[in-house]
Design a binder for these strands. Structure first.
Length: 274
DNA sequence: AACTTGTACAACCGCATCCAC
DNA sequence: TGTGGATGCGGTTGTACAAGT
């Protein structure tokens, strides 16, 4: 007998969150901190399951979230980490402060995957796509994890282009494939950068990806601290205060006016986050 | 202007894992 | 050690919006 799904209870709301629900949830979490998610909806007066609340908070309402497209450096980091970790989105996200696993996953599926394919790189194996890939074990003896298996749909997607345009690799990492109207042709070395901590690029990418991974896979959790440990002042400000605080800040741009105010206010009240 | 197709991303679902009892 | 509840994670779906026809 399986466990009952948490959202099966009659009367619980599903679907998009309203501004009012967001406000209730944020207000509650700011006043009480994160405790047991199961209790949150009840205590916050929400007709949602705890899981839904947690997801909404983690992926959308958290004050330290960055919004918008990933930067070049962040994309590189994601590609690099994906090569090492596979689809472990939460692990990858832990190396990108302000980004969520969901966001990275979405970005991977919509942008990065396509980009890599256009450059002749298999987004699953991170190796050059060959014209007629034989079904055999990798030459270097590397073990292909189950999650790296290429889904049938992806094979179908790759085949025509690869066959039609003579994708080649000179063995030195230089790949010539496809017609790339929008994406400039890059060498493999431009995309898969070394993991010795000397990675070229922005300080952000070198410190957050290669360095931290090579040091035993430990996750840099420092950036999480502001969330785990709310400063005292945070407990004292209500949503009204936040909105009042909003006009004094200048550099944050988000689409949702509510979240804009909320985040601006939080950063105003906690200088170390700036 | 109306319709179709593509894209982006928020949210849901089900399974895995952790942990207390 | 086994069991069940809570939470986390990754895959997938739903939907709003933009672009194209």
């Amino acid at each position: 007998m399986g466990r009952q799904p948490c959202c099966d209870k009659v009367g619980l709301k599903k679907g998009p969150w309203t501004a009012e629900e967001d406000q209730r949830l944020v207000s509650f979490l700011l006043s009480n901190g994160q405790c047991c998610w199961r209790a949150v909806p009840k205590l916050a007066g929400l007709l949602r399951c705890g899981k839904s609340c947690r997801l909404r908070w983690t992926n959308y309402l958290r004050p330290d979230l960055k919004r918008g497209l990933l930067s070049e450096a962040e994309e590189k980091t994601v590609i690099d980490l994906h090569e090492q970790l596979g689809n472990r989105w939460s692990k990858i996200a832990s190396h990108l402060p302000g980004r969520t696993d969901n966001e990275i996953k979405n970005n991977w599926n919509t942008h990065i995957k396509k980009k890599l394919r256009k450059m002749g790189i298999d987004p699953v194996t991170h190796k050059p796509i060959h014209p007629a890939p034989p079904r055999q074990a990798p030459a270097n003896g590397a073990v292909v994890s189950p999650e790296q298996k290429v889904p049938k749909e992806e094979v179908e997607e790759i085949k025509p282009a690869a066959v039609g345009s003579a994708a080649t690799s000179d063995g030195g990492g230089h790949v010539d494939v496809f017609c790339t109207d929008e994406v400039p042709m890059l060498h493999l070395d431009d995309i898969i950068f070394p993991c010795d901590g000397t990675t070229a690029g922005s300080p952000e990418s070198s410190s957050s990806s290669a360095a931290s991974v090579s040091s035993g896979g430990g996750i840099d959790e420092e950036w999480l601290l502001p969330i785990m440990e709310w400063p005292e002042s945070m407990y004292l400000i209500g949503l009204e205060d936040m909105v009042v605080a909003a006009p004094t800040a200048t550099s944050w741009e988000f689409e949702d006016p509510f979240n804009t105010y909320q985040r601006i206010a939080l950063f105003d009240h906690h200088e170390t986050w700036a």
